[in-house]
Design a protein around this nucleic acid. Structure first.
Lengths: 110, 110
DNA sequence: CACAATTACTACGACAGGTAAAGTACTTTT
DNA sequence: AAAAGTACTTTACCTGTCGTAGTAATTGTG
């Protein structure tokens, strides 16, 4: 299993990636993360919703209410231009991070 | 620069990697991290020493005093078999993590 | 020879992000 | 009628990082 401390710095990025494909809401994003990672990473509900708050406070996403006439009302999110810029930065940072951490990793499958 | 939240889950692993090559102490490890990462990652002193305490509490490293007759007395560390096992685990986890995060990253250098 | 810089730590307190636990509320399936 | 699924919110806690500051010795510089 992937420990949360490892992926910690990338939860926001993961959410933004999924919002690139269009507006979405908590539960759907949660399911998409699970699917895309093939069950290898499951973001906890509280982590997800606190990430939404942080991202919105930073101006990286915007929220609005869906117009469902039944069911619990959903809060939808869309990515902002600032959010896109942040996502791009994170992608670049990731390439660097991968490279750096790789230098401290050995391969044992020999 | 690499943000600390990203590398957070790997500070312990980085230290263990350097201890694989032999006993060492804080200042030396700190310099080795800087060198090996080509200045791309510099571990803060407090982070480093608190990592030592954590690793020792977990039985992953052992400390002992050097026999310097002058200068400030160094605390040396060596990796334990448990520490080695933990390091191996982390290496495997890293391969998985890399794979998972990559699914949420786009390449913009096109 | 004085002072700065470097080496080698330790202590303290603040903060951010993740998480367990519990609760709310509505719909669909059994 | 109950359980399971959808869709969140609130609270309180824990861990790891880090800014700040202090201690103590050695080495380099003007």
């Amino acid at each position: 299993m992937i420990s949360s401390d490892v992926i910690r710095g990338y939860n926001d990025t993961i959410i933004l990636y999924l919002l690139l494909e269009g507006e979405s809401y908590g539960y759907e994003i949660s399911k998409n993360i699970k699917e895309l990672s093939e069950e290898k990473y499951i973001m906890k509900e509280t982590t997800l919703y606190s990430a939404f708050n942080r991202l919105e406070a930073n101006g990286f996403i915007e929220s609005f209410f869906g117009d469902e006439t039944f069911g619990k009302r959903r809060t939808y999110y869309r990515i902002t231009p600032t959010g896109l810029a942040y996502y791009k930065e994170k992608c670049e940072e990731w390439e660097l991070t991968k490279d750096v951490i790789n230098r401290f990793i050995k391969e044992w499958n020999v």
